[in-house]
Amino acid sequence: MTDALAVNNLTIYFEDFAAVDDVSFNVSAGSSFGLVGESGSGKSTVLRAIVGLAPSSGGEILLDGKPLATPRSKAFYRHVQMVFQDPYGSLHPRQTVDRTLAEPLAIHGIGDGERRIARALDEVGLGKGFRFRYPHQLSGGQRQRVAIARALLLEPKVLLLDEPTSALDASVQAEVLNLLEQLRRERQLTYVLVSHDLAVVTHMCERLLVMQKGQAVEELSAQALAARQIGTAYTRDLMAASTGFKRE
């Protein structure tokens, strides 16, 4: 069986600096895969390379076993969508929720907009009352729900999540994570989740790849991590850091 997404020896250079250096991983259909690392680890750059926002300098990216064309085709964007980190930056400040959600439908010539938009808002837990609001009339969590609704309108199979909850309060994070899990179950989506938070990644993903300074450190399953079956010192450091401060 071919993987929904395969990244083989991906390398990305910005000028002379290797932002991503020979990174490989496979994501099977319907599963959820995590990329963990600190800032500068290249984890977000991998996602941006998959969707064509960052140029790849080497290696290949396969979707359902087929290499991707550059620039990405319109059909690709109906197959793969992305949710960004900053809910305050990912919505156009002068467009209502309605306009934002109508845009993907207009671009792809999908009819029946009224019903689809209403359903999408319903699905992410925002009622009709939010449809004609501007982003500044929404909270961070509500904005992120709109961004998720926008990504789902094209009915993609693969959803890339770039730190979807790191700008949100803890209680709102829980709500958004629950929503993402529920959507994955209902739509049999494949997730690639990028986060700096080990706890979030182990909660959401079956397998994860730890990255540091553009390189893959180790790939392991969430169960192995929980059972402390860790192979590298760096992952252990991350693990220790996530439990809080310890006084010597």
Binding site: L53, F76, L91, H92, I107
Partner: peptide, 26 residues
Amino acid sequence: SSEYISAVKLMGASPWRIVLRHIMPL
């Protein structure tokens, strides 16, 4: 370089559409 323009790009919008409908109004 803002994320909302990246998001529209990921919807598959053409450069003309991005300039006319998303950048010009701002």
